[in-house]
Structures are given as structure tokens and as C-alpha cells.
Design a protein around this nucleic acid. Structure first.
Length: 275
DNA sequence: GGCATTTGACCGTA
DNA sequence: TACGGTCAAATGCC
């Protein structure tokens, strides 16, 4: 019966679930390796990523085997309705043909933690769009060295509907600029976004965050700060998507959906790309 | 003044 | 034709 239900499930969800479970397996193996190497901090971060991935697997599974009485499954359905379905979003993410893309979901564990959005590379915001059916606008960034070094890497950042701490970050194309040669593999590994001090300068970091902050549909406050805290900037009605002007290091979780050809990248970034 | 962001307009794709 | 992605002029900040 489960298999019948699974058949009723969309092929995209099957693939997503399979991919998610494969990532869980890979992370468990990585966790084993790190424990053997006596790297408790790295192992703890991997645990965060694992938890996020498992959570996503559960959500996907619930969408295949609904639990009507479960408020979470209700939220999931509501999200699908609001967004026109994840399949539509996925299609948008894969829209550009010929340009490899990486979809990475970054979760901040608290409003104090936005380190997950810092990938150590220099981006410049070039646009923002309201997306049909999406609660929050999508911000578009491209490599700062686009014109000087012909680096055509871009990324899109969007707050996930229904989860103010979860951000969809979609990377298109690989960096070909000089800065791409500098980020360490650790920085590009899932879960390590905030562990080491970023190569991104303070101003660049602010730029990224300012870009994200600008996603708010209202702008009544200069910088979003309220008495040492931070104004939630994406929702006019609730404390959602709390982009802020500074952040502290902390635990974070990272979810990823990878194009097949990019899966290797996040686990062996230096081997998969010529930086 | 230089640089970054904002935002309306335009373009390509489905 | 609708929508997402990008461009580029306008604007703001340091």
C-alpha cells in the first residue's frame, strides 16, 4: 500500500526524497569520518545539517502520505498551494538551460544567526522580484567581478514560505574570478558557512545583508535595528525572515538540493571545479 | 566621487 | 501572454 501511495506521489517528490536520503547517508558517513578525526565542532555542525535534511525528508514523506490531523502537513499543503507547488519552483530554479545550478537551502537557527547566508564570496545585488505565489521577494546577486574578470556566477536568495529561518539560495554558474581560488573547501562545505571568519570584508558582508534586508516590503526603519535587537524585515505583520545588520556565529543547519552534476561539488568542491 | 542598492522597464522563455 | 531574470538609470550612503 505504501508503494501505491508512493506511486501516487509525484516523480519529483520521489527524486527529492531519494536525493535527500542519499544526502543523509553521505552526511552520516562524513560524520563518522569526522568523529574518527576527533573533530567535535565539525561533527556538531554536520549534525545540524543532518537534522535539517531529515526534517526535509519527513516533510516530503508527509506530502506523499498526508496526515490530515497534523498541523504540519496542513502547512505543507498550504505552502504548495500558495507557491503553486514546489514543482513549479523547481522548474524555475532549473529554468536556465546550459548553466549548471546548485540549489542550497540555508537555515539560520535563530534570528541572531545569519552566518549561513555568508558564503565567503563577493556578490553584488542587481535585482529583486516579487515571485508569483511566494510570500517574499527573491533577491538576485551576481559576482562583483563580473565585468573586471568576466565572472558570470550569480545567485538568488529567497526566504522560504512558512519558514522564516530558511532561505533558498540558488547558485548559477561557477566563479571564474580570482576570489574563487581563495575560499577554502571548508567554507564551501555545508554547515561550515559560519565557522571560520569569512573572507568577505565587513562592507561586503553588509552589502549582502543589506541586499537581503531590502527584501522587506516596507522600509520605515533606517537599518532595521531596534534597541540593539533587529527588526524583522520581510513581513509587515509578523516576526518573519529576520534579516539583520550584523550577526553572531552559532549553530546552523544547511539543506541542499543539488543538481546531480553539482552534488560532488559540495563534497569535493576543489575537485569538481576549476576555481 | 565612487560604489552599492533600488526599482521600473525590457527581454526571453514556456 | 504571464512570469522570471536582467538591465540600467536614479538614488543613497560612506
Amino acid at each position: 500500500k505504501d508503494m501505491e501511495s508512493m506511486d501516487a506521489c509525484g516523480g519529483g517528490k520521489k527524486r527529492a526524497l531519494t536525493s535527500e536520503l542519499a544526502q543523509v547517508l553521505a552526511m552520516v558517513r562524513e560524520l563518522e569520518a569526522r568523529m574518527d578525526q576527533d573533530l567535535p565542532v565539525a561533527a556538531r555542525e554536520l549534525c545540524g545539517a543532518l537534522a535539517s535534511s531529515i526534517d526535509r525528508s519527513i516533510r516530503i514523506a508527509r506530502s506523499c502520505w498526508p496526515e490530515p490531523e497534523s498541523p504540519e502537513s496542513g502547512d505543507w499543503s498550504a505552502q504548495n498551494r500558495a507557491g503553486g507547488g514546489n514543482a513549479r519552483k523547481d522548474a524555475q530554479f532549473k529554468r536556465r538551460k546550459g548553466v549548471p545550478s546548485v540549489r542550497r537551502q540555508v537555515r539560520a537557527t535563530s534570528v541572531q544567526d545569519m552566518t549561513a547566508l555568508n558564503d565567503g564570496l563577493s556578490w553584488r545585488k542587481y535585482g529583486q522580484k516579487d515571485i508569483l505565489g511566494a510570500k517574499y521577494p527573491r533577491a538576485y546577486f551576481r559576482c562583483r567581478h563580473r565585468h573586471t574578470q568576466d565572472c558570470y556566477a550569480t545567485k538568488q536568495v529567497q526566504c522560504v514560505d512558512g519558514d522564516p529561518l530558511l532561505y533558498d539560495v540558488v547558485y548559477h554558474g561557477a566563479h571564474t574570478c580570482a576570489q574563487a581560488a581563495h575560499p577554502s573547501a571548508e567554507q564551501l562545505q555545508p554547515g561550515n558557512a559560519g565557522q571560520e571568519q569569512s573572507l568577505m570584508s565587513a562592507r561586503e558582508t553588509e552589502g549582502l545583508q543589506a541586499g537581503l534586508e531590502s527584501m522587506t516590503p516596507f522600509s520605515g526603519n533606517d537599518n532595521g535595528a531596534i534597541g540593539g535587537g533587529f527588526l524583522p524585515l520581510l513581513s509587515p505583520t509578523s516576526l518573519e525572515c529576520p534579516f539583520r545588520s550584523s550577526y553572531a556565529a552559532g549553530d546552523l543547519g544547511v539543506d541542499m538540493e543539488l543538481e546531480p552534476q553539482f552534488e560532488e561539488f559540495f563534497w569535493n568542491p576543489t575537485e569538481s571545479f576549476q576555481w
